[in-house]
Amino acid sequence: MEGEAAEPPPGDGDPQEVPKKGENGSDPKDPPGCPQPDRDILDQGEGIPLKHSNTLTNRQRGNQISALPATLDTLSIHQLAAQGELSQLREHLQKGENLVNKPDERGFTPLLWAAAFGEIETVRYLLEWGADPHVLAKERESALSLASMGGYTDIVTMLLERNVDINIYDWNGGTPLLYAVRGNHVKCVEALLARGADLTTEADSGYTPMDLAVALGHKKVQQVMENHILKLFQKKELE
């Protein structure tokens, strides 16, 4: 299918230019051993359709005829969840049992795709329909980690209200807090800390969330964590 790639909507962190990948797929600015999310999760690749671009097509310009995009009725339930196509998603869910938690080849359910792309209304609808927020994909990716990676604080809060594991770790030891710190998502970090995210948890590389914030120069996130630690000490003294 031809189309123009659509970037995931920004999270709540400060706007940043997306750096080019290094030879191993990591960002050049990342410290050695920094937990690396699976970049393909955030790229709509083979199985996930591209959102329609607002850019004029060749046909609209009066040039050669361009290929028609796939129609919504040809998309899978996972593709519809990633794009937030609620009306078509409802139709799919009504076709059979257990579709709401059906995994794709990577173990991603519709809820995981919706969380990864910040589709809050889709996440809410899937949870109401019975989507399991505790499901892990093949490399232990969780809806909470994916939402934290993108800085989607409202989705993070919604999932935490469903009592998901706030310190869940994936294949390289990355936790929701570590991914929120790495993405410089200040509000998301605040939300996770407020619900008891563990500041001492280390990635496989040995980095704690504070280590990561310092190494990446994320001063606002660092200040949030320092304030949180200070409050914990003050609370302990009063007990």
Rank of each mutant, 00 (worst) to 15 (best):
Q88F: 11
H92E: 10
G33V: 01
T175Q: 03
P32G: 06
I120W: 06
L72S: 11
Q94C: 09
R124C: 04
N227L: 13
L199H: 02
D27Y: 15
G217C: 06
P15R: 08
S53W: 03
T74H: 09
G174M: 05
G183T: 00
L86Q: 10
A131E: 04
K20S: 15
E85W: 09
N58M: 10
L80A: 02
S205V: 07
S87L: 10
G84H: 04
E7V: 14
G62E: 05
I48Q: 06
K21M: 10
V214H: 10
D14N: 12
H78E: 01
A147L: 03
A81K: 00
V186E: 08
K235N: 11
Q223G: 06
K236A: 14
Q44W: 09
A180M: 00
L72P: 00
L238E: 15
G151L: 00
N172S: 08
A197H: 01
K51D: 12
R140G: 04
V135G: 04
P69V: 01
V18C: 15
P9S: 07
A82M: 02
K95I: 04
I77V: 15
T109I: 03
L111V: 06
T55F: 07
E119D: 03
P110D: 07
K231Y: 10
S87T: 15
S87F: 09
V156L: 05
C34I: 03
P10R: 07
N101S: 09
K219L: 11
L159D: 07
Q88N: 11
H228S: 07
K138L: 13
P28Y: 09
E91R: 12
S87M: 15
A67T: 06
D132N: 12
V100E: 08
K95G: 10
G11M: 01
D30L: 07
S205M: 05
G183F: 01
Q16F: 10
T208L: 06
M1D: 09
R39L: 14
L199M: 09
E128C: 08
K236D: 12
D204G: 13
G206M: 08
R106H: 13
V221T: 05
T208W: 03
E237S: 14
C188W: 00
P133S: 08
P209N: 00
L89T: 03
V164R: 05
N101Q: 08
K236S: 10
V224R: 07
L126M: 09
V164C: 10
T109M: 07
D43A: 13
S87R: 14
A82H: 01
E128F: 08
G96M: 06
N172P: 04
H78C: 02
L230C: 10
V156T: 06
M149Y: 14
P103W: 06
E4G: 10
P10M: 06
D38M: 15
H185I: 00
H92L: 12
D170Y: 05
R39Q: 15
K21Y: 11
Q36K: 13
D27V: 11
Y179P: 01
N167Q: 04
G33E: 07
